[in-house]
């Protein structure tokens, strides 16, 4: 017995030594946990967060990151940041029309075969910052800023990862990592080096609703907006899910009762 006990103690000791080294081998940090309003089976996007998040995207991110799959009208569709019940057709939504009109988009060709510029309309796509990938690379030191249409779904633990990344520039790089000009150290990014400079600073933008524009608040809001952009029908999905679940549970109950009834006179 003594020997077994000693062996067990030794095994636990070896494990205790081995496990931390295994963890330390990981090159970058796991995203920090965060609480979002849209989590859980009943979670919805907070309109204020969505609207502020759109502002952050529009004034900060959109300089480098496009959203190819989104149209401006999406902003005013059900579940979107600027949805108004009295404008079920988002193309009529005055807020969205005003946002769209701020952009100048290229249209055409006209009857002479020339391209021309006009103010944006809700039916237009979000304006893309680059004409093509090569231009995007050239403008950013060789690193192409990824499209944001589905960015939250396209990253593991998307919302937490993006928030941690945005706020993750305050760490000292390890001694063996050379940070060259044009690169920034961020331990949440695979490999630790990324070409995006820190973007969020306190009071970088002014929120019209008076919310304090801290770094944390802006990161929270823009991730909420990007989550909506990745999945604009999330609220509809959960609403329908509730109805489907109620229906299926009731049907299962009825069928179980029928099953008991049918089998009641038979041994099995």
């Amino acid at each position: 017995m003594k020997i077994i006990q000693r062996l067990l103690v030794a095994a636990v000791g070896v494990l205790a030594l081995a496990v931390p080294t295994a963890w330390a081998a990981g090159e970058y940090y796991k995203p920090n946990k965060h609480v979002w309003s849209w989590e859980g089976p009943f979670g919805t996007y907070d309109r204020g967060e969505l609207q502020r998040g759109f502002l952050v995207y529009q004034q900060v991110c959109s300089a480098c990151h496009g959203m190819e799959q989104l149209h401006l009208r999406n902003l005013g569709e059900q579940g979107g940041p600027f949805y108004l019940a009295e404008y079920p057709n988002a193309n009529d939504n005055p807020i969205v029309r005003a946002i769209a009109a701020e952009y100048i988009v290229e249209d055409g060709p006209d009857e002479f075969g020339d391209m021309f510029e006009r103010p944006g309309r809700p039916s237009d796509r979000f304006p893309y910052p680059y004409a093509n990938q090569a231009q995007g690379r050239a403008a950013n030191g060789g690193a192409y800023p990824p499209d944001f249409s589905v960015i939250v779904k396209a990253r593991k633990q998307g919302p937490e990862y993006i928030r941690s990344l945005l706020l993750g520039y305050d760490y000292e790089p390890p001694d063996d990592l050379e940070v060259r000009p044009g690169n920034y150290y961020n331990p949440y990014f695979p490999g630790g080096l990324l070409a995006m400079a820190p973007q969020l600073q306190d009071d970088l933008i002014e929120y019209p609703d008076g919310a304090p524009a801290t770094r944390e608040q802006m990161a929270h809001d823009v991730v909420t907006f990007l989550a909506w952009a990745s999945e604009p029908h999330m609220e509809a999905r959960k609403r329908m899910g509730l109805m489907v679940m109620i229906y299926l549970l009731a049907l299962a109950g009825l069928l179980y009762a029928a099953y008991r009834q049918v089998w009641s006179n038979v041994k099995h």
């Binding site: 999905r237 959960k238 329908m240 899910g241 679940m245 069928l255 099953y259 049918v262 089998w263």
Partner: peptide
């Protein structure tokens, strides 16, 4: 009736993924 009940229970699991964890 037994298969019907089992199918609906299976559909509940199915629906959980479709609607809540797609």
């Amino acid at each position: 009736v037994k298969d019907g009940f089992a199918i609906v229970v299976f559909l509940i699991i199915f629906a959980f993924f479709v609607f809540y964890w797609p």
